[in-house]
Design a binder for these strands. Structure first.
Lengths: 112, 112
DNA sequence: TCCTATACGTAGCAACGCTACGTATAGGCG
DNA sequence: CGCCTATACGTAGCGTTGCTACGTATAGGA
């Protein structure tokens, strides 16, 4: 998959990933990989900054804990995050329908 | 629509738009607008540089002409461009299926 | 001792769409 | 004639964002 295709769609993925319940960053990466059958194996340099962005935007909220001697930061959706997720879903449906029909190419006006 | 959602997907749209036959840049913008029912109204600062990129990559080829006293650059798909378009279509199907199922959120593993 | 898995992080880069301009011609309207 | 709109091309610079390549640290098995 080309790097740019994901741009603008990662946030929705992360929010959806946190919808069933809180996860920490490393678990988010694993969940993404499992849920997509290995198609999406995001590097930490993509996921951690994205989680920080989402937290700064108050869409998710994190807190530190310790398990097995390792510190973790678990994130959960905020109310605003849930609304954003619904919005992302609606946006995605419209966007993907648009691209699909355009790429399909049955509705292009005749070239002059 | 957010600006970033289109990133990485514009090239495919432009190639698909040129598939029925040659168009010049301004006509590409109008075709995009008509084909999407006005959803996609791209600024010239988006389309012209993108066409230049595609031409530099040999996916399209353009030539100057004059109509009604105005110069135009008409672009048509190259063989490489047609292959790229098919590739973009396959990529899009895989990508959109992935995002759709992930956003839908029925396959997330249970949070620990 | 060394490697792997787990777990967090950042600096810097590259790509790309968009904003805001600028140039020019044709044609309609007052 | 002046002005506006549509047509038609273009670019400089910006902001966002995902990725590469690092760095830090603990736990546990070989």
């Amino acid at each position: 998959m080309r790097a740019e295709s994901l741009k603008g769609h990662l946030d929705g993925l992360l929010l959806a990933c946190l919808e069933p319940g809180p996860r920490h960053g490393y678990a988010v990466i694993e969940a993404l990989r499992e849920a997509t059958g290995g198609q999406l194996d995001l590097p930490t340099g993509t996921v951690y900054p994205a989680l920080h962005r989402l937290e700064a935007a108050r869409l998710i909220s994190g807190r530190w804990s310790v398990a097995d001697g390792r510190r973790r930061r678990s994130y959960h959706l905020t109310a605003k995050g849930r609304r954003a997720l619904n919005s992302e879903r609606a946006d995605w449906r419209a966007f993907s329908a648009m691209i699909s029909t355009a790429l399909d190419g049955r509705l292009w006006p005749n070239p002059a």
